[in-house]
Design a protein around this nucleic acid. Structure first.
Lengths: 208, 208
DNA sequence: AGCCGTATCAGCCAAATGGATGAGAGACCC
DNA sequence: GGGTCTCTCATCCATTTGGCTGATACGGCT
């Protein structure tokens, strides 16, 4: 079995060195480099062309994880990209998979799970932590509850605390239209007030 | 110089092993154990009586970091407790300091900063990351903007998406009183609508 | 005793929000 | 061509929320 070369991307030094220590115990896995930002990651992928990229989504400043995934895919090299992050946010999962991630692991995954994911990724198998998988599954099962692009846009502005009038101005639509969208959003989210919508939106969008 | 014994507490294995690797480079710092939960941490403090406890606030299930700090202090042993966490949430900082933390570091702190904080902690000096310090400072400078206990309670329920009526029922007060409290909260937070209050509250409470 | 902060409540009025319903335009699919 | 989805807008009406003013009560501090 040939060894798998891995690039680690995370803005936290401790996480990088922790992963390094963890992966170091596996003879078939070789961490060839680590990066603290998306820009650096891109550079290193070009240079070293590692087999697997393990990447956090939350990155301090600059390019975020999703964007980094997209760019790496754009290089049309053959890296398998594994998301390794703290939160199982609905939106992040979809966006990451969409951007071209091969797997999605949570940081509290067991070491064996992480090893398996890396080995699976190079073979084209996609692995995700159980909570992540169940969320994805739910998305597919309930297509009625998926927000349209316009609704998602509105919801995102809503969580900034804007009023209907402001939403309308920001999106160049009438207040009437804003209200229509909001009504749809509420019913899809299963709430009845804007306050509850904001609360569930922010929480679903990935912090817990 | 005698060596400093350290206990690491974090629910993420990678973070623990990362810190271990990092601290292992310092001859005067000795990581004697690590724990993945508050319960475990308490046990180990009793058993090993380490000089410094480095602790994450976010802990999966069970006891959270704040609670763990309080309990460790309750043992009236002499551990210096350092908070080591991802977010610089206003509320968390205050609560942690209040519970008896000696310092507050962010996970993207430079290694030297972490070393210095540990060394300082055993000598009774309290160290915090610059962003944390500035937030604390701001709290002290603007006592007008600190919510009263009742207001904080209300705000917390507000972020669940409750209406004024529901808030009143939940807190056994009239809707009129709810409105009074809300008006005060808005002015203290510098917002004008409940939506904005929820948005800033949830974000300030520690996710970014 | 007097002052201040906190918590409680009331009433009034303007503005924002939510619910129901209907409807037109463009895109896409079969 | 017909059906479905999405986005757009409108009207009407009930409810909720926000702004204002003022009031009582309790506790702590000086």
């Amino acid at each position: 079995m040939s060894t798998i070369s891995v690039l680690l991307v995370d803005d936290h030094l401790v996480v990088r060195s922790g992963l390094r220590a963890l992966l170091g115990t596996q003879p078939d896995i070789d961490v060839v480099a680590d990066a603290g930002s998306g820009e650096e990651a891109l550079e290193l992928v070009r240079e070293l062309s590692p087999g697997v990229v393990v990447m956090d989504l939350a990155m301090g400043d600059g390019m975020d994880g999703i964007e980094a995934i997209r760019r790496i895919r754009g290089l049309n090299s053959r890296q398998a990209i594994l998301v390794f992050t703290t939160y199982d946010s609905d939106a992040d999962i979809v966006r990451a998979v969409d951007a071209g991630a091969m797997g999605y692991l949570l940081k509290d995954a067991a070491p064996e799970e992480i090893f398996a994911a890396i080995r699976g990724a190079v073979q084209g198998r996609s692995v995700m932590s159980p909570p992540v998988a169940s969320r994805l599954f739910q998305q597919l099962r309930n297509p009625d509850e998926i927000l349209t692009p316009r609704e998602a846009e509105l919801l995102s502005l809503l969580t900034q605390g804007l009023s209907n009038r402001e939403l309308g101005q920001r999106l160049f639509i009438s207040e009437a239209t804003v209200k229509t969208h909001l009504a749809h959003i509420y019913s899809k989210l299963g709430v009845e007030t804007r306050a509850a919508a904001i609360a569930t939106a922010i929480r679903r969008e990935g912090m817990r």
